[in-house]
Amino acid sequence: MTSTYRITLLPGDGIGPEIMAVAVDVLKTVGSQMDLAFEFEQALIGGAAIDATGEPLPEATLKTCKASDAVLLAAIGGYKWDTLPRHQRPETGLLGLRAGLELFANLRPATILPQLIDASSLKREVVEGVDIMVVRELTGGIYFGNPKGVFETETGQKRGVNTMAYTDSEIDRIGKVAFEIAQKRKGQLCSVDKANVLEVSQLWRDRITALAADYPDVALTHMYVDNAAMQLIRWPKQ
């Protein structure tokens, strides 16, 4: 029996429509081999949506996405829209999509194919065998915290403000995703923060440490973000 899935396509901007067409061809090929059927519906987002509707994320697009089994997004943004007010820029549509679909966990695998090792700017012995899953929190933190904006002070100066904030529940849910993924992989989890300077990062570290008690089969370590950036280049296989 063929299973049918409804997929919303968001080609977006730039090379988006071109790569989306190829992705659809791939899905159709997979479907024919795996007894799967796909119903595709295309919607607007980003610069394409701004040009057509004046909004980076039309309500109709979000409604269509919520009614789908999956959403396939290609690319967003371009120089054409960089001078628009921030709330009207293509990237605002992406943030709205994340919030509207509650996409709080971004999974970024980092591996390298043997055929591409010599194309890396890092030495072969550094990158060969790398297999990392980065779990990134998407709907809390500085992108969504308030207050934010550019304000004028009493002395007439302009002051830019962004607020980095997390609740314990926001930290716990992304932490659980990371621990569960670690259980299915090597049983190692490194939590990256800036707890030596930021109170919000101290809360992050405290909550992740508390969660570790529920996952005794996962070895948890902590690392400051600036050191983590160096270690990813120096020895990513660790």
Rank of each mutant, 00 (worst) to 15 (best):
T53I: 07
E125A: 07
R234H: 14
T83R: 15
R207I: 09
N106S: 07
V30F: 11
A195W: 00
A229M: 14
Q188W: 06
N162L: 04
G54C: 08
L198P: 12
M230V: 10
I15Q: 10
D172N: 12
R173T: 01
I142F: 10
N227S: 15
A110M: 11
V225G: 14
D118Q: 13
L189F: 02
V22M: 12
A43K: 10
G14R: 04
A165W: 03
D168I: 02
L62P: 11
A37V: 00
A99V: 01
F40W: 02
G46L: 07
K63T: 15
T167L: 10
V177I: 08
K176W: 01
F104G: 09
D193N: 14
T167K: 14
L97W: 01
A119F: 08
L103D: 05
I174H: 09
L189R: 07
D206M: 14
R173K: 13
C190M: 14
D206W: 02
A75F: 02
L62H: 13
L220Y: 04
P109H: 09
D193S: 12
E102R: 11
G93A: 10
G93T: 01
G187F: 08
P11Y: 03
R173Y: 01
G129I: 00
R185P: 09
R207T: 12
A228I: 00
G156I: 00
A43I: 00
A37D: 15
L101H: 02
P109E: 06
P85M: 04
T8S: 15
Y143A: 10
L198D: 11
V71N: 13
L44P: 03
G77R: 06
G160E: 12
Q188A: 15
E180H: 05
F104N: 13
P56D: 07
Y5W: 11
G141D: 05
Y166P: 07
A43Y: 01
F104W: 07
R124K: 14
L107F: 09
N196A: 08
G156T: 02
I181H: 13
Q33P: 09
A60V: 09
L44A: 06
G96H: 06
I208S: 03
A23R: 03
A48E: 12
A119M: 10
G46H: 08
P216E: 04
V126W: 06
M20Q: 12
G96F: 02
A210E: 14
G78K: 04
G46Y: 06
G47C: 09
M20F: 02
T92V: 05
L36D: 11
S191A: 14
H222Q: 07
T2E: 13
K123I: 00
I112G: 15
K184R: 15
Q33W: 01
G93F: 05
I171D: 04
Q115V: 09
F179Y: 12
G78R: 04
T167H: 12
R234M: 12
G12T: 01
S121H: 11
D82Y: 08
T139D: 13
L116D: 15
T209H: 14
G100C: 08
F179L: 03
G187S: 09
A52V: 01
R98S: 01
A119R: 10
P147D: 09
L116C: 10
D214R: 01
K80Y: 08
